[in-house]
Design a protein around this nucleic acid. Structure first.
Lengths: 96, 96
DNA sequence: TCAACAGTTAGATAATTATCTAAATATCTA
DNA sequence: TAGATATTTAGATAATTATCTAACTGTTGA
């Protein structure tokens, strides 16, 4: 279901995090440095994005690296294309 | 700003309304008939979509017809494409 | 002009969310 | 093993949101 991803994208801070992660993977600290918010607040946003499966995380030593999960990201993009003509023809999604 | 559209799309009822309007214009009543919710609740959702400029409304006699505003809808789609490579090359958006 | 119909606005309430500070957990290094 | 660093979890609070019922507004046609 796309409910969690859409809810996650509703917040501007989380959308900016997505944009940052589209550039390259980043640690939680590097991400937090881009905002005026406290680290716990950013951590909470990262947790929301993780629950929505829009990002993944991996610990490397002291740091936790976050990456964009392009699969779910793409599924959201597909919603916009499928919107209105789902179950009507052959599966002409995938790439555009 | 895309904040209102993204917030509007965070609700599943509103996303379903968008899908309905992608098919064809509908009156507020026809839209409400598709849901188990009360008319005032749907009216509130329509108002949110209108504020986000994702839909437009036009009264025709007793009915108010709602239509999808494809311009703003497309701007949201573009966010996903522009995400990560904004201001990097020539304007290679528009169609894909 | 009045009754019926279509839709919105107002006001209330319960649930969710964003943010903060303080405390906890995990890892590294001396 | 203790101290420093990176990050998350807990708990609190204020703001926002979704939904309902009741009341209101606008339009039509008898």
């Amino acid at each position: 279901m796309l409910n969690l991803p859409f809810k996650a994208l509703a917040d501007p801070t989380r959308r900016k995090i997505i944009l940052l992660l589209k550039e390259h993977d980043m640690t939680a600290g590097e991400i937090a440095d881009q905002f005026k918010m406290t680290k716990p607040s950013i951590s909470h946003h990262l947790s929301t994005l993780k629950q929505a499966q829009l990002v993944t995380d991996e610990r490397k030593g002291q740091n936790i690296y976050y990456s964009l999960n392009t699969t779910v990201f793409q599924e959201v993009v597909n919603w916009f294309f499928n919107a209105g003509h789902v179950n009507e023809g052959g599966n002409s999604d995938e790439e555009c």
